[in-house]
Nucleic acid binder design. Structure first.
Lengths: 97, 97
DNA sequence: TATCTATTTGGCTAATTTGCCAAGTAATAA
DNA sequence: TTATTACTTGGCAAATTAGCCAAATAGATA
């Protein structure tokens, strides 16, 4: 595996890593319904707000979500509509056993 | 997030985790070309055979690949044709920056 | 049987990730 | 200006993951 190829797969894996956590997957699904502020996500997930904030940062860095501040609230939305088709694929793998 | 929902997202994340490594992504792509034995994969990737074997185990446990032993060789193939469409999605995210 | 070849497994250390708490920042309200 | 609300960041301990070497296993061949 040469350097160029290695770089490409590293980049892909970074995006996938940003999805590879139950809480983050839940958030992605939750955002499919429309943008939400951090406190709404916290309310749904039920973990510390700092934990949610870090999960959101991970996904933002990977380009999976976008954010915008309005007033006191930070609103997050998904950046990529193709993600839901990804879940369809995942379910079909998951249902094998 | 109740227990039932948590379980569903945990399961999804386990599949995604099994993809979340550059070497494993490369292997998935390599297998798209048809089944390969472990030593062919080792040759392409260039890391220790024990490392490759463990990566393959991770993917097998997640249901991403299947294996069959013939003679001395263990042949691996992808278990899910939808994975390549997943990569198309990843590329579109990756090309944003 | 003994040996060779292909692969897996055990064991270890190093690196990364997670989630909490506490402290910091930014926008609004009093 | 001070306080409040919403969120982010720093720091830390616990858990998980990665990759190497060495040892074990399974099948083929001499």
């Amino acid at each position: 595996m040469n350097n160029e190829i290695q770089k490409r797969y590293k980049k892909r894996s970074e995006i996938i890593k940003a999805l590879a956590h139950p809480t983050r997957l839940f958030i992605i699904d939750f955002l499919a319904d429309g943008e939400k502020c951090v406190c709404e996500i916290v309310e749904q997930v039920g973990v510390d707000i700092s934990t949610i904030s870090k999960h959101l940062l991970v996904m933002k860095n990977a380009g999976l979500v976008e954010s915008e501040k309005r007033g006191l609230n930070m609103f997050y939305k998904t950046a990529c509509p193709c993600i839901s088709s990804l879940f369809t694929c995942l379910e079909s793998i998951g249902n094998k056993d």
